[in-house]
Design a binder for these strands. Structure first.
Lengths: 220, 220, 220, 220
DNA sequence: AATGAATGAGCATTCATTCAT
DNA sequence: AATGAATGAATGCTCATTCAT
């Protein structure tokens, strides 16, 4: 599966049901065949994602989400047990999305460095394409001190790849979380920076930052 | 100024008034000369910092802060206009602290790389020593989309240093925010990682990560 | 009509339609002739009765009742106009049941005292046999101050019997409601007490309490 | 202490602080010396008692209570942890009141029967004087199936007296809860009856009912 | 008749803030 | 300066009821 086809599957529900549409295209009509199906669950998650980005995790209420999703407040509780589980579900969808992207981009028959550059670049592009994603990830995963398990959901497949590379002496002999920090930290920061200034405009720039991160973890 | 002398200046208020004591040493006696003065303002900020780390920015109330600081709820409003300004004041204190550290550690007569390694390492050590600092920075600066001005308070003095280095061809020809992302992103990520696992234990490790970040931004 | 035959008529609807089955025998088959008809109305009332006993009148929702009755929430509104009327219907069924019992047990050719002892004892046994009945009666009839009409539905046939006995000088010259209080008050209290402790275990005990109540109202 | 002085102490708080005024006299000025003290806690309990009687335990909301007590909704939570504890506190106050009355009226040097008649009559008068009391007791103690401990708070001192009388062969050899049922059941029922009809009008009537109850439990 | 998603008013409770003391 | 009782708007959530299927 290539990157282009991924866009079609952005934010796939765990049961393969589209839950919320891309930020740029809120009126997805995939679920509205015959003008009947209204994807309320997707609308709720999409509204929550938009509002968390705008007002922060502690700045949104269930009423705000309902209004943004254009449904009644009580409807959220038809689809989710409570606010906490709704946000957990949203986080889960986003991390699944990223993890899926990583898995699909990895080519076992290519050099690790080439894989790294490609995956890192595509994740960055995905983040920049819908900045609500990294924004939500950052706020949710670190909103309280006991969210470690949520943090670990993200980039799980990357752990395996990095471990092999370290064993092969390709990357520095550092603990995996340390290597992840050198990779994912700049990723999140760069997305934030793009909101404030104009750091990345052309595709070529992405590769420069990917190379920079590679320099950080490379054994040589 | 060396690192030791820094401890005396930890958390200095912008108007040079000590607002809250070091995490390890909550009973700072500087404001308690003559055994009379109780630093209520500092106690409030210190309590807020502790609780935000513990329960998240959206998990604390003014009452909780008052209880943690062992004062009455109304007293907070004697010292701060409202919750928002109290948190802004806290953020300001912390960023001032970090910026001051950077300025004091910079030696114009040393190599830029040596300055970088030293400053980056000491900032990381400071963050790890009182993790409430990076924790609060992260939660506060990105809690809503309009906190850009707060984000820019942090690392202001670094901009000047980086700009010179870029002009000298020492670091990559990238926009300053991009370079900052490659430097500060891993910093924040590493601190977070240390809470979950045991990434950094010895001083020597810090230098490895500092070198890794240097590799990321270095022109060569 | 004797007690045994009563079981067949437990919880008869006022329009002579079985609404809910006996607590001990939830799968009454009377309404299920030809294996087709499912007594949803009876299942709803039976579920409501069980849940009111368990969680109190203010502790149950229509959804809980639907779940207990194993039907959809909306189905309740097929059979009842709203919650209020459903509960009124339940109360009506129960009082009809008790009133029917009283009427059937009365033998005009026996001594009033003997009739009293027998009827009082059988009502008590009926209450103890399915404590949900007195429990619901008590909670429903006194849940608000304007339920007087509901209260008066209960023991209506007893009024006639007592009036005659008073005229005959057999019982004390007190207002009928006063005599009812001396009779039905201990009845309800005893049922409650049996839930907390082990007041009544053998049949012989019932007669002792019946005699005690007779002593309370007897003219001598 | 005689009955008259009791009226002054109706609904005494456990810490001897008047919490709510008599139903007939809602504007007690005892706590409003110097026009300063506003007994908000008492006003809340008084409002709750009135409304439970009027609309039933499940018919009142915290907002209704606040409005009846003429305070803000949030104020209730200044004085009580939550609704449950507020109601428990109200029940506790009322049962304390009744238990205190029983203890004060008992004269060890009089015949048990005389004590019984007097105490029973005075409790009935107290109930009739403020019918909100028995109304609330009845609704609260049996609102759910796990309120046994609350039920046992009521009439605790009566248990001791009855036990002695039974040992002396003065009353029937029945379990104490059974004797209580024969005594307290009619009490509650009579109060209810007085609301619907005109059962008791003169003081002399009370004694007739007291004698009737005595006949129910008397050994002879 | 039966369903269950959807509704929105209403609920208990929390909370930032005020103000009389 | 410090207090903490009081406030009332706002919150997360529940629930009786409706209605398209």
């Amino acid at each position: 599966m290539n990157v282009r086809s991924l866009n079609k599957n952005l934010y796939i529900c765990q049961i393969n049901e589209r839950s919320f549409s891309n930020g740029q295209n809120n009126n997805s009509n995939i679920m509205q065949v015959r003008g009947k199906v209204k994807d309320k669950k997707g609308a709720i998650l999409n509204a929550a994602l938009t509002l968390v980005t705008k007002y922060g995790l502690h700045g949104i209420s269930m009423k705000m989400i309902a209004e943004e999703a254009d449904i009644a407040a009580g409807t959220i509780y038809v689809h989710f047990k409570n606010k906490e589980e709704m946000l957990a579900s949203l986080f889960s969808n986003i991390t699944s999305e990223i993890n899926l992207l990583v898995e699909e981009l990895y080519s076992p028959d290519k050099l690790f460095k080439d894989n790294f550059i490609r995956i890192w670049s595509e994740v960055l592009k995905t983040y920049i394409n819908d900045q609500r994603m990294p924004d939500f990830i950052n706020q949710y995963a670190y909103s309280a001190s006991d969210n470690r398990s949520y943090r670990e959901q993200l980039l799980t497949p990357v752990y395996g790849l990095l471990e092999q590379a370290r064993r092969d002496g390709i990357v520095k002999q550092l603990p995996l979380p340390g290597l992840i920090a050198l990779i994912h930290g700049p990723l999140i920061s760069l997305v934030r920076m793009t909101r404030d200034s104009d750091v990345l405009s052309k595709d070529i720039d992405v590769n420069i930052y990917a190379e920079a991160c590679w320099n950080a973890i490379s054994a040589h």
